[in-house]
Amino acid sequence: MYGGGQVFEPSSTNNELLKDEDPKKLAEFEARIARGEKIEPKDWMPKLYRKQLIRMIEQHAHSEIIGSLPEGTWITRAPGFKRKLALMAKVQDEVGHAQLLYGAAETLGKSREQMIEDLITGKSKYSNIFNYPTFTWADSCFISWLVDAGAIVNQLANARGSYGPYCRALDRICAEESFHLKYGHHCVIHLATGTPKQRQMMQEAVNRWWAPMMHFFGPSDKISTHTEILTKWKVKMATNDECRQQFLDMYVPKIWELGLTIPDENLKKNEETGEWEFTEPDWEEFKRVINGDGPCNKERLAVRRTAEERGAWVRRALAAKTKGDKYVAPMA
């Protein structure tokens, strides 16, 4: 899963990178994208395109692997067989998504191990929302349904992008996300329509998660940096505001129909403009958390590092079996 708010390079370096591209090749490249055709790994591509795609796909992959932790918190406690099996499969899928996405990013020339190193050394970011804790079972249900719903809005948009390997990975991922979404909704429905205690548990989870959910799509496009060229190259397929609006439009009514309230009294659809209005999210808090000062940043990285350390002897041993074969990037 993944949110907006990708960290793109500031535009001065962008210009730097674009300056010495061959204009003829660049024109052909842009014409292919304009025709709606996909770029494949062996095609010529501008350095900036490569760089921003690596950054974006890598962050997406990190978000999947880190995203497996908040829901994984409840993996040993899921109530009943149906939930137990589903949550195991759901968390497994997120790990699988990371595997697929790392593979797509690798086709652009960065090895998976390099990316994982950048994650655990804090050099590279992941979706901010996973820096929040899952206090109860209901929190994990909120994520499965609504954080994944937000991710799907993003991923469906990106699946129409220009880079073949990323689109293929996203097609697979979106197919699995439909299970996550239905499973999550099913869980929330059961809590919201269940006993008073279950209902309260669910309402409290909505109260806790609403602000991070609004942050999930990233700052308003009005205040985020210009990404025109990335839009033209079909790297960035929808603006943060478009994704947020689409999410609200699809899911607020579904939350309300379960008799749950959303902790924002200004939230309503403006029937004239068709746009949702809401209290401006606290972007200072968003920045603080993304820069490391959230409730779980430390834990998430510590756990990822611990997993790496505990697995190191396994990888060392297996590597001894590879008989000098050299790593090459995946083909497609």
Partner: peptide, 28 residues
């Protein structure tokens, strides 16, 4: 997460992390 509590991960960890072994990258 009870799984994580069982791992006894130190509450404080340094900001440096040993570079990953290059060999960690298996072939494709």
């Amino acid at each position: 997460d009870p799984r994580i509590n069982r791992l006894s991960i130190p509450a404080e960890f340094g900001s440096s992390f040993p570079e990953k072994d290059e060999k960690d990258q298996f072939i494709t």
